[in-house]
Design a protein around this nucleic acid. Structure first.
Lengths: 342, 342
DNA sequence: ATGAAAGCGCTAACAT
DNA sequence: ATGTTAGCGCTTTCAT
């Protein structure tokens, strides 16, 4: 276990003081060129590596960013994280990942440990359980940027980045209508999450705009898993007046529906159309391809990271909360086509 | 920006000293019950939160684990990371993620920043470019656990966890042979990576064992992307003596092959069989389902994390390098079936 | 342009 | 059972 060389060691070696070394290394104005040169040469020679913990303690920052998501192994979240990491790495920040598994208790714990670790900012996508936001107040009190993405908290006055879920739904449902489907069911998630609420509203708005009546029995709230999709597709199709299309707020439950319908030998598309949400990787790979709303995970992550850096530069007290809404794209694949009907 | 309460504040409040507070909070033996009670009550009352940076500086550890992978948004890696995070969180560790995009330069940078941040351990899956391992020596010199998983470094005497790639390939190819395929091509990755080398050897061994001749033209090294799979499937099928099956070292290039073959209206399975490697999520969702070798990403992550915790407990100098090899499963799906031929 | 000195918040060796 | 003291390695006033 080799001893690491410290600023003190370099100071001794050069018959100067730690402060001079510290300044020289950071190109502080007011250090002679000769000294700078000498210090850097020494640092190189001894492979000096700064102790970020020590500098963190002194300066009160850790060059670390906390990212809290429900789960890291979801295409959407892992893509966002990937994009965030790429951006902030260039600015010298490390990313600590935290997965809540949608449990609010873990969300609270993570907020605490991140704050105790003096992270320089926290990016959050809320868990399904979170209906109450007091634990996030601490982040604001700590004076570091708090940014919500995708599953956001409407009530808090902080920066938020999301896609226009309403519009995504609206596009999806309008497309189904244009394809000739007119009895369209909807799988939705919990109402207290902005994303699902907005998707449902976009769905309703599209129906209204097309003079289609809203049938409450066609709106099913479930947990948006593959299994839920299968189960509820079955329930829908066994009704006396089954739907001719399903628009799901999640690709996973759309997939469940698709699998059930295929098994039952329904003709997709044609007899029944299916559209999902999120553009998970698998949607383009299955047969039929699943029409889905793309959430621009890369851009979203990039924005998150850039806004974090911007707020960090502004400094505590000078944050300018922003709300960024990205426009989603409908990616039309086979599952929502319609045969031309006579 | 609220001032955080420190150990000193609590000491003042209770007319005692910081060390007593520190000890009381950590249940140090030799602190009176009464005092412990009082301290904890005070801590609770003032919502005292320890500054992990300060304690880290003093104790030389950060309760943080660095995980370096090629990319975080790959099913395999994000699943491993997810499993790691779940395990070490319970033990009080944070996870810093680092993605190299397969670039050795970033690998080196990450090693440095992680070491400078005094992480308590580093878990690595090597990038495609990495052929030289000097940068990892520093981790050993730092006296913290270094653990390789999946894409490992054979030469270093540290803990390694991987699946038996040889065996996975062997099972896959043996299965194809049993299904009646006997001219089996192979997509491989760079030879200097253990995983691809072993997969190729397993393939060769299976052919030999079944008295099938090895045809070098049937072994294609590419970068294992969807595009490479398409391109090389085309190349293979245009040969005078095309294969009747393709075994790819990656699901992505297997998918590429599948897409090309479907487009060309080959009958899959039957006319040609396809098997991939990694059991990416999409393999079970596409049509035909892609037979693939499962890498047990969850267990692998869990093991990684547990071995890290074990080594941390052992302490520097007492590490016992271990090599853990998990047995992969062949998940047989439709793409490798064979119609009974008269 | 550089140095001296103090201290970020905590822990641990050494008292008592 | 508790207090005293001395840092961990760095940054940052305040001097000179």
């Amino acid at each position: 276990m080799k001893k690491r060389v410290t600023i003190q060691d370099l100071a001794n070696e050069l018959n100067t003081t730690p402060s001079t070394i510290s300044r020289a290394l950071r190109n502080h104005p007011g250090i002679g060129e000769a000294m700078k040169e000498a210090v850097k040469k020494m640092a190189e020679k001894y492979d000096y590596q700064p102790n970020t913990i020590a500098s963190g303690l002194r300066s009160g920052k850790s060059n670390t960013l906390g990212v809290i998501v429900p789960r890291v192994n979801r295409d959407f979240f892992s893509s966002v994280i990937s994009a965030i990491e790429d951006v902030v790495f260039k600015a010298g920040y490390n990313v600590i990942i935290c997965q809540t598994h949608d449990r609010v208790e873990k969300e609270k714990q993570y907020i605490n440990t991140l704050l105790n670790g003096r992270v320089d900012g926290i990016l959050v996508s809320l868990g399904l359980e979170t209906k109450e936001y007091r634990h996030f107040e601490k982040v604001i009190e700590a004076g570091i940027p708090l940014i919500f993405f995708d599953r956001i908290c409407e009530e808090m006055d902080v920066t938020k980045i999301m896609i226009d879920d309403f519009d995504g739904s609206f596009k999806a449902v309008s497309h189904l209508v244009k394809m000739g489907y007119n009895r369209i069911a909807h799988f939705s998630g919990p109402d207290f999450l902005n994303v699902y609420r907005n998707r449902k509203e976009g769905y309703i708005h599209a129906l209204e705009k097309n003079n289609l009546k809203i049938d409450e029995r066609m709106i099913i709230q479930n947990d948006l898993t593959i299994e839920a999709g299968k189960r509820d597709a079955e329930r829908l199709m066994k009704m006396d007046d089954p739907p001719d299309a399903i628009f799901s707020a999640s690709d996973y439950s759309a997939l469940g529906a698709l699998l059930y319908l295929k098994e039952m030998a329904y003709e997709i598309p044609g007899q029944i159309g299916v559209v999902g949400f999120s553009n998970e990787k698998f949607t383009s790979l299955i047969d039929p391809g699943l029409t889905s709303v793309d959430q621009h995970s890369d851009e979203l992550g990039k924005y998150c990271a850039e806004l974090f850096l911007e707020e960090v530069n502004r400094g505590a007290g000078n944050f300018v909360p922003r709300k960024i809404i990205l426009n989603p794209n409908l990616l039309i694949r086979k599952s929502s086509w319609r045969k031309i009907i006579g």
